[in-house]
Design a protein around this nucleic acid. Structure first.
Lengths: 230, 230
DNA sequence: CGTCTTCTTGAGCCACTTCAAGGTAAGTGG
DNA sequence: CCACTTACCTTGAAGTGGCTCAAGAAGACG
């Protein structure tokens, strides 16, 4: 009906084998500050699938380096990226048995992995871990609600919110270094790639931001961005 | 910037005293199937505030009868209704100390109330209750993600999804009996009241639905609605 | 039977989409 | 080191779905 839109996914990228995953030589780390829940490090190539929607959720994940997108695709190919996961973020936690989104590495990424059943077993005894599980779900809920709120705003407002969020979550540098493409941004913000590009150009025109390179953006005027963010 | 929009709330309705709440004579009931967590019944009038955004979350709520909307208002007055809560639904659970949304009764409603501190105390010992807390948050997360996905669709698709959801959640009758106004629907779906009205008329025109009365809608052709729902 | 609220309908407009090039950057093989 | 390729990004011109503004109809209530 509506033609408005986002990428239309037809086929999946070449490497969708869900574990291209040459086991990384790297050591391992804890997921919940709990020595029992020590994750195995895995490496995912750019665009490699971490898991698919409605696959059984066997693992819980934590980004060590790189970036991950979680998304859903509608029957007609429109894609919505529900969230971006950056170093330090835990993702893939489910209460139910299967994943509600698909997940892919945006860039080459290192990800810690722990068996979900193990996490649950520990959570049964260790109420602190149980609490963390709930906490993580609650945090994601807030993000999701914030995201929904974003989707009723104008293109400028969406981009302003997006840039401020990324600036806050990415390592602090003089410029924001975006790991994702314009298409990813568009599919996250519910816009087309053209509108994203045009709006950024426009913000640069009023020198609210500076486009050093397409994925290197300096926030020149955060006040204006915050005002746009309502 | 964008004028696109929803209601612009300027002032609040008359009765915003947060507890117009003549304690209902009705008995009490359990919130989590746990006798320790027995709620006190309270009655809220139509449009009465149950709690406000960023108020401290002292209670957890369960709808007995009536209906509740949870919403957020942007600085310029645009409102987004994040969810409708119908009889049987628990709402107002927060991991953090304050509410992330405001809540209002849509119609005169009876609502069970339990102190949050009590729920938490019980959850510490009773892992089943702890699990339910997580479960409820997880369910709400799924709803929120589904809601975000809805917001990238066309007006027809949004209405189709909305009607099917309401049909599924409301008591089964020949017609769907909506408790909420067109404005509420608009603010939930990210549309204007005019678009909601026009789209319903249009769906009735193609006899996918029948508008028995403005808030009494018969779903004549669920297949078509489901197809619209992607 | 007026008054108020809610809902519907119409006409014009605008932000964002669509379609269509063109430009830039990064990688690859010679 | 440079031609070639491919992926990504930007820009322009035209179309359109949903918004705005405006008015009227239908209920609900005292």
């Amino acid at each position: 009906m509506l033609t408005q839109t986002q990428t239309r996914f037809r086929e999946t990228p070449a490497h969708h084998v869900s574990a291209v995953v040459r086991a990384a030589g790297v050591g391992s780390q804890m997921l919940f500050g709990c020595p029992e829940l020590t994750g195995a490090a895995m490496a995912f190539e750019r665009n490699a699938e971490v898991y698919g929607e409605s696959e059984t959720a066997d693992y819980v994940y934590k980004v060590v380096s790189g970036a991950v997108r979680t998304y859903r695709v509608l029957s007609d190919g429109r894609r919505q990226i529900s969230g971006f996961h950056l170093p330090g973020d835990v993702f893939g936690i489910e209460f139910g048995e299967e994943h509600s989104c698909s997940a892919e590495a945006i860039t080459d990424s290192n990800i810690l992995v722990v068996r979900r059943s193990l996490v649950f077993k520990v959570a049964e005894r260790n109420s602190d871990v149980a609490r963390q599980l709930w906490s993580l779900t609650a945090t994601e809920l807030r993000r999701s609600q914030q995201h929904a709120l974003l989707l009723i705003k104008s293109a400028q407002e969406r981009l302003a919110a997006f840039l401020l969020e990324m600036a806050a979550r990415l390592p602090v540098k003089s410029a924001v270094e975006l790991p994702m493409s314009r298409q990813d941004i568009a599919d996250h913000l519910g816009l087309t790639i053209e509108t994203v590009s045009r709006t950024l150009t426009q913000l640069a025109g009023s020198s609210v931001i500076e486009l050093v390179a397409s994925r290197r953006i300096v926030l020149r005027n955060r006040t204006t961005l915050s005002e746009l963010n309502s």
